[in-house]
Design a protein around this nucleic acid. Structure first.
Lengths: 200, 200
DNA sequence: TCCATAATAGGAACACGTTTCACTTCTTCG
DNA sequence: CGAAGAAGTGAAACGTGTTCCTATTATGGA
């Protein structure tokens, strides 16, 4: 434990363990990026990360845990990238749409990866609650911050709206990763929802 | 539509084939109802429906197709039951909430079945598009009809709102079947969204 | 009725997530 | 340092979705 403190969600462990964990998640992202959900095969991940299959399962108790953890790491990056970006939209609706478009574009730039991570998220049950909640918080945080830049506290109505937007976003993404709608339709769908919800 | 013609989504076939198909779907619903998604094992379905495994796969090319087809049959029943029911709500929002509560209550009365069907729906890819679209149409139809009872044509705004509500409903259901939220929270979540969307 | 063809039965075999186990290599601490 | 326990390795084995194959049975037209 080199540095001062650790968040509740951070795992402790030796540097060798942190290194292994990183290698595993890197391999996961890499395989997902190449061939999507089906290409993330546990034996392949273990091989590419240069750990034994049993070790992989010691770090991540299932394929779903593995992929949702990877999603968490990706969302963390996205959220911190967004924090540094100045939004240009004039209204809450415009800014929210801007944020969602940026995020979606990032995802749609890597369809296989998106498919793998979204599928895992949708399939995750309560045993993955910790990782899931983390992703949900990033999402809500990104939307509420877009609604009211600079503010740090948000009232119930704002959070409720952000949640609904998150739901629509997930459904739209689901439609896209499962090939039921195009990227354009997905964007449209989200835009309509945001305008309906933030129309005052 | 007894004998004269058939819709595009209806399969033709001899009465023996229709009978087998029904037995398979019945077995599917039964097993799902008892033990959820995991209990719907293809060998078990085949056994209970008294068909060979190969025959099961001839009728439904995958477990997902099988379950989404079963969902379609259930939704058909729900939708026609709702058609005959007189809604008591005074406003569109109240009526939509009424319809969704009724539907949700039906689902939550059989948690295992709901879990199985919802999971399958979420996991379905574009190869199941036909069945998926059918389910989506039932959903949109139920919501728009609740918004404007008696009306048969709906403008774009109404349909857009119905779609957003459907998205929230699916996300909420997902949270519930995966054990991430309670039935009460799910109902609350949907109610908030409907009130936000139909607040004028 | 009889034959060609499609449909079904029955079951082996394969793929991949997951579990298990015996053995080896670290890590830690007295 | 040396020993105990934790972590990692490598491989076998199991469960379930899916595929494949051969023999048998229905079906429908000449």
């Amino acid at each position: 434990m080199s540095t001062a403190h650790s968040l509740a969600t951070e795992e402790l462990g030796s540097s060798a363990q942190r290194e292994r964990r990183k290698r595993i998640l890197d391999a996961t992202i890499d395989l997902a990026s190449q061939g999507g959900f089906d290409a993330v095969q546990m034996r392949a991940v273990a091989d590419q990360a240069e750990v034994a299959l049993g070790t992989l399962y010691r770090y991540f108790p299932s394929k779903i845990h593995l992929l949702v953890s990877a999603l968490g790491r990706e969302f963390e990056k996205t959220e911190s990238a967004l924090r540094e970006r100045q939004l240009t939209g004039q209204t809450p609706a415009e800014r929210v749409i801007e944020v969602l478009k940026l995020t979606s574009r990032g995802l749609q730039g890597d369809p296989h990866l998106t498919e793998a991570l979204t599928r895992a998220f949708m399939f995750a049950d309560s045993s993955v609650q910790t990782e899931i909640n983390q992703v949900g918080m990033y999402m809500t945080s990104m939307v509420t911050r877009a609604m009211h830049p600079g503010r740090t506290e948000f009232d119930d109505q704002d959070v409720a709206i952000a949640r609904v937007i998150g739901d629509v976003w997930l459904s739209a993404l689901m439609g896209w990763v499962t090939g039921r709608s195009t990227a354009a339709e997905t964007g449209q769908q989200i835009e309509v929802a945001v305008k309906l919800l933030l129309r005052d």
